[in-house]
Amino acid sequence: MRLQLDVWRQQDASDAGRFERYQVDQAGPEMSVLELLDLLNAQLVDEGREPVAFDHDCREGICGSCGVMVEGRPHGPVDYTPSCLQRLRSFSEGDTVRIEPFRSEAFPVLRDLVVDRSGLDRIVASGGYVSTPTNAAPEAVTMPVNRDEADQAMDFAACIGCGACVAACPNAAAQLFTGAKVAHLASLPQGQVERAERVRNMVDTMEADFGSCTNLGECEPACPADIPLRVIAEMNTEYRKALWRHRRTEEPDRRGIRWLSRLRTGPWWQSDPDERPPGGG
């Protein structure tokens, strides 16, 4: 099948960028959007022109590398599906297909269809984990988990980190991404100890880089991992509870026993003063 492609071309972050029109003659209905770009690139390279840069890797919908706007929709016309699994069945002979990068202020364009999604990792780095030093874990079955709850945690943990939720959101909010991680760890016993601190830090970091959620729900159908919209509500509840808990634990004077902490300040009990936890000792 013959398709016209309007593809966003941009040399680098400083370039203004523009759409360029190409024609591909041998597109097939089983091809993915990325294979269409492969085909276009093979054509461009044959002509000695620079191929279209785009992120991609596993092509099985699990790595989260790929993500382009197809006809104004993150990943493509089919809901809940990543670019690599968006088939050209959605299009027919002679169609014009517009392909551009994820559009979001939080995701600056690096080149053509490649964007910088490192803001998502900054959210994770601020708290999206369980602090378990290697070799410190107890025997795994000592912490039983209800089967349905484990299943639910798995639903939330399925996020592939592609950023389509942000691209879909008119506010460029990352609530679905952040909510998925918060809900995943909050629903397991392993996540309880840092539960309040985690959501506080993650939400605060998110707010710094991304827009705010106004409950439009555009993100949910864009999500290839089927993360449900309710993770946002769960995150908001968690956040409110965490603020409350924060107030309770932060306010009292936590100096410890005065005479004891005076006596025990200093390097004698710890050989490396730099290794003291922030605010501790």
Partner: peptide, 10 residues
């Protein structure tokens, strides 16, 4: 498991 990997459960 301690890191929160949601292994399938009985």
């Amino acid at each position: 498991t301690a890191q929160g990997v949601p292994f399938a459960r009985e």
